[in-house]
Amino acid sequence: MNSFGGNKEFENLGSVIKNSDIVVKNKKDLDTIAYEGRKEYQKKLIKDYSVKYPVKANSIPVLLERGVVDAAILDGIKAITIRGDYEEAGENYTTYNMVVRKAVMGTREFKEFIEKYNEVAEELNDEKLYQKEVKIYLKEGKWPKHVSTPRFQRIKIL
């Protein structure tokens, strides 16, 4: 655990979700890719593309549909609603961290929250259950078989 960005009021408890991004492609020959501009880890995952567009996530579907970019990298839940071919973005990278205000960390409510979070993380690491839940959000009800399920990390409090 460490302070978040030098801010002493918050604590970074570490990784809570790993490997949850997907690349959506709308062409076979790829040159340009859109990524969520504030996510530095995405920039590292797409280093092989010659042109990279840092954008807001909500503009990515339009950029793909209009052919402004050949591909995009974004969170899997957002990506599976976009037409295109899917592929894994990579593996063993942290997608989301949990950052908490230090003032709440010692409270009973926070400890209960972490216990519940850890229970849900365990359930979501069951690939069949995760896919079942994802299908609720899909129109076609299909999950791309070649895209891995994200890993939900348990939080340990000392």
Rank of each mutant, 00 (worst) to 15 (best):
M1T: 12
G6T: 12
G6W: 06
E9M: 14
N12K: 11
L13I: 11
L13F: 12
G14S: 05
S15C: 04
V16M: 02
I17C: 02
K18Y: 01
N19P: 02
V23P: 00
N26W: 04
K27L: 09
T32K: 10
A34I: 06
Y35G: 00
G37V: 06
L45P: 00
Y49D: 00
Y49I: 00
P54N: 08
A57V: 13
N58Q: 14
P61C: 14
V62K: 13
V62D: 14
L63M: 15
R66P: 05
G67Q: 12
V69S: 03
V69E: 03
A72M: 08
I73P: 00
L74K: 07
A79I: 09
A79T: 12
R83P: 15
R83F: 15
E91M: 06
N92K: 05
Y93H: 00
T95S: 03
N97S: 09
A103E: 14
M105T: 11
E109H: 10
E115A: 11
N118R: 00
E127L: 05
Q131T: 06
E133P: 01
V134F: 12
L138Q: 07
K142G: 10
P144Y: 10
P144E: 13
H146V: 08
H146N: 15
R151E: 05
F152M: 04
F152R: 01
R154Q: 01
K156L: 04
I157H: 09
